[in-house]
Design a protein around this nucleic acid. Structure first.
Lengths: 102, 102
DNA sequence: CGGATAGTCAAGCAGATATTTGACTATTTA
DNA sequence: TAAATAGTCAAATATCTGCTTGACTATCCG
């Protein structure tokens, strides 16, 4: 992961609307686009714009199931970016109990 | 720390030049402005601009000693911002052995 | 097929940001 | 006090970003 890629991860988190989306996802396992937009209080068009930024930075991953797309935080990307500004950062292997993970 | 303040922390890390500065500081304990600019390969004027952004986001702290200002990463700020996108993030209490901390 | 639900995309605008240049201030040292 | 070192600031420019609007595509269901 290059310096530019790491900066892109932080840029994805640098906007309050996107940060809200990611913080919502951090507590909720996964959400579909419509729910994300509704909970964040934004239009689906605006969600689509921000979703693209988050996806291109690999901060989230998306999976289509039927009509909807479901979205999760990609922890590996956050960990890789955070490690460089905090070399000895340790992360817990387990996720909070209210969040089921595959 | 509000959503906007957390976003501001990530915005401070979102530019490759500033991220480089912070990553340098993460490995080097502290550096003065002239050394930061030289090691990052930028002008002092540009450093001054970026330094202001990092300081206002509280990502670094600065201290004047004589003619120079010395700069360190402020770990508390990073931890507070990171916690919200990664609720169960654990940080090591100790800093790497090559880095002396007050 | 046709309608409903879910999301995308492009254009356009307004405000923010990165960088350079050159003049300015502050502190130390001779 | 004068020169050197260390950093600041304002203006200018070019680029990027966030958001809205409205038209478009994709999937499902009757």
């Amino acid at each position: 992961m290059t310096l530019e890629e790491r900066a892109k991860v932080f840029a994805a988190l640098a906007d309050p609307t996107r940060l809200k989306l990611v913080e919502m996802l951090a507590c909720e396992e996964e959400l579909c686009g419509t729910d994300l937009a509704r909970k964040a209080g934004i239009s689906v068009a605006l969600l689509s714009h921000h979703w693209k930024v988050l996806t291109e930075a690999k901060v989230v991953v998306r999976e289509r199931r039927g009509q909807s797309q479901f979205c999760q935080v990609k922890r590996e990307t956050l960990e890789a970016a955070f490690q460089n500004v905090w070399p000895n950062l340790r992360v817990r292997s387990a996720w909070p109990s209210n969040v089921a993970r595959g």
